[in-house]
């Protein structure tokens, strides 16, 4: 029931959104809203909507924070995770969701991404990964595939791309997953699990940018780009049943990392107890 969801969780006064026709970001924003709705409605979780804070940086992705009807803060380029870290440490009871993009979180904000992952602080980071800097008109990003064209790669991109989920996992993230704009149900579930996870979670969601990335690289329109995701990105149940040969050229949609490790703000509470016990001696 998308219309009900819009009235409940979107700031309809501020819609329609600024994203181009065919952009995948609206789908991903909806996935986040559905995941939150499920957790609010779940009697065992009983997530308090008033305790949810949505944090974003700068770029196409980051406009999502302003459309979502929660406490929201649209910060500076690359710094969403750093702002979110301050929010979470100051008030650990808050459920802090970071909405960011491939450039925002893995280029200008890469340092904050890896260190938040290393600390295992309980943030949920959802990347709207469209392989391009869309807001500024189509420059290559850290996830633009090698050889692809961009306004700043007129002879083809010679950079090697990041896999953001693997980058976060390498930095110590205790929950990492990959979703896509096409795989709505799977992605929503991964975001829900990421929010539930006690520790740093990152869900790298492949968006589509037909306007700047798709057109320049002859990927077709939004439908063709979503079709590519359908054909090349495979949900876990099916992916793990495939042979190594079949997996070639295919990407997992599902969880990449899921481990238990002490969460930062919980450890901080213990640190305060230790400091106060020592001072009291």
């Amino acid at each position: 029931m998308p219309s009900e969801l819009i009235h409940k969780f979107m700031r309809i006064d501020h819609l329609p959104h600024i994203w181009c026709a065919g952009c995948g970001n609206g789908i991903i924003m909806r996935d986040v809203a559905v995941a939150l709705q499920e957790l609010i409605d779940d009697p065992e979780v009983n997530l308090n909507r008033g305790k949810v804070v949505v944090v974003s940086g700068i770029g196409c992705s980051s406009r999502a924070a302003g459309y979502m009807d929660f406490d929201s803060i649209h910060t500076t380029h690359g710094r969403a995770i750093a702002f979110a870290t301050g929010i979470k440490i100051a008030h650990p009871e808050l459920e802090v969701i970071v909405l960011t993009g491939d450039g925002d979180c893995s280029a200008i904000g890469g340092n904050h991404l890896i260190h938040a992952a290393r600390r295992n602080i309980g943030l949920t980071v959802v990347t709207f990964n469209n392989d391009i800097y869309g807001m500024t008109g189509g420059q290559y990003s850290p996830t633009t595939p090698t050889g692809d064209m961009a306004t700043t790669a007129p002879y083809g991109n010679i950079d090697r791309p990041f896999d953001i989920a693997q980058l976060a996992a390498g930095a110590g993230a205790t929950f990492t997953a990959r979703g896509s704009a096409y795989h709505v149900r799977e992605t929503t579930e991964l975001i829900r699990q990421g929010i539930m996870h006690k520790g740093f979670s990152l869900i790298d969601v492949y968006s589509v940018c037909p306007t700047y990335y798709g057109r320049k690289n002859h990927k077709g329109g939004a439908v063709e780009m979503l079709q590519w995701q359908k054909e090349h990105m495979v949900p876990a149940a099916r992916y793990y049943a495939m042979s190594e040969e079949e997996k070639k050229g295919k990407l997992l949609v599902g969880t990449l990392t899921h481990i238990d490790f002490p969460e930062y703000t919980a450890e901080y509470a213990k640190l305060i107890e230790r400091a106060q016990a020592k001072a009291g001696k």
Partner: peptide
């Protein structure tokens, strides 16, 4: 920590300033 507050050594100066603003919007 002795007074129930929080100290965090961030990864860089930009993050420190950002975290301070984040903490402040929660009223601290």
């Amino acid at each position: 920590p002795q007074v129930g507050g929080k100290f965090v050594q961030m990864e860089d100066e930009l993050a420190s300033m950002a975290a301070v603003l984040g903490a402040s919007v929660t009223g601290v």
